[in-house]
Write a protein that binds this DNA or RNA. Structure first.
Lengths: 229, 229
DNA sequence: GTTGTAAGACTTACGCCGTAAGATACGCTG
DNA sequence: CAGCGTATCTTACGGCGTAAGTCTTACAAC
């Protein structure tokens, strides 16, 4: 009846993801169902499956789309080479605040990342940029590693420190990673190598948790000491 | 046929919650469906609804059950009166690590709290204990307020700093809260009062976010300075 | 032109989910 | 024995993700 004219795609992976983003922003992530998404696209639900294999792929795609938005917000993921070694902290601060600005536009995203992870290329390059900034400031890979855990909640707007596995990258994956995120790959290579029993769970979650906790407690003690009596 | 003998309850709110806890721990939170839970209890799904109004009530109940477990782990929520004002940080540290020990046994719980919140009495008394510890250390209510936001992710194993509303308690609720969580209520009374436009969203999320972020960045700068060259 | 092929949509249906509505079995009190 | 409240079961509905198969169209080869 509606006289659909061609078989050239009006539906694409990109248009689906963009519609999904709009729908989630407008009505919340729980309103993002295959049927609702199809309706927004003027199409039947099953038609989406030609372009994306399942709903999880849509969620993963959304994470990547938002990281692309973050990249634009912070002016590109490979940060400009630092001219001043002491400027790493303000640089990092601005980068994290920029990411937060984007996440505030998509407040449902942290939950999606929490459920599905954030291991696409854009997310990786974001982390890589952070590692690069810290590296330019003179931090060791080991300290950077701890720092990533500590600021994780600020980078992503959430944190799940209770993960049961550290998601050890296989050596093969590590090579692929090097092309995409060289700083991150270098850090992993060194930190994993240092740990003799690196079969799995190469992060000691308890240690990382206490590292971040002590950072905060020390800071609070200084704030307390500076408090007007 | 199975000759169920009595109408005296074999099912209770408590037995349902305990079975739900077991099921979530064993098979993950996504396996916690009304039908699976009923089967575990040797009962039909709809029978559960006599004791709990819906599934969300079960999730809320689980949060409270786990906070009771935390209370037991840390030796009671009203912390013992501090003998030494400088001991607040180690006391708080131990309390947070204790909570983490419990959350590690129920790794699905942070996600539930993220989705459903943690506003039951046990959760409130937990926060109240933390406020009490900080208060005994000499912190102002204002500083305590900031600190709660900063350590939120450590207290709960997660953080959702992107909430859109600050959940302003109505004055009536505040009275009820005072009975349950006096330290927390005192803090809220003061902090909310200080803010002239306290109609809703009395926390400035951006300020709180930057407070916690700067705590971490300063700490990392000190770690970097202490790093062997 | 006719026909083959494959892209890109649609149709139908299945097994899950939470739960509304109501029926049923039992013990207790009059 | 009648009636009532309690606790459980039965049935069914609408919505979910998606497996399987079908239909329409554009285009290339003859």
């Amino acid at each position: 009846m509606p006289q659909r004219s061609v078989a050239r795609p009006q539906l694409t992976r990109e248009s689906v993801l963009q519609a999904a983003l709009q729908l989630a922003d407008r009505d919340g992530i729980e309103a993002l169902t295959m049927r609702a998404l199809a309706e927004q696209l003027g199409v039947e639900a099953m038609s989406i499956y030609y372009h994306l294999p399942n709903k999880d792929a849509i969620l993963d795609g959304l994470v990547e789309v938002v990281f692309a938005e973050i990249e634009h917000e912070v002016g590109g993921f490979p940060p400009p080479p630092a001219t001043d070694a002491s400027s790493w902290a303000p640089t990092l601060r601005e980068r994290i605040l920029g990411a937060r600005r984007v996440l505030l536009r998509h407040p449902w995203l942290p939950n999606v990342m929490n459920a599905r992870g954030a291991s696409g290329p854009n997310a990786m390059r974001h982390v890589d940029g952070v590692v690069g900034i810290m590296r330019a400031g003179g931090m060791s890979h080991d300290l950077i590693h701890h720092s990533l855990h500590a600021i994780g909640s600020r980078m992503y707007g959430y944190v799940q420190e209770l993960s049961d596995d550290g998601a050890t990258p296989a050596p093969v994956e590590l090579e692929q990673l090097a092309a995409l995120a060289p700083h991150l790959a270098a850090m992993l290579a060194e930190v994993v190598h240092d740990d003799p029993d690196s079969t799995l769970g190469w992060c000691d979650d308890q240690t990382e948790f206490e590292f971040g906790l002590d950072l905060l407690l020390e800071g609070l003690e200084r704030r307390l000491a500076a408090q007007p009596a």
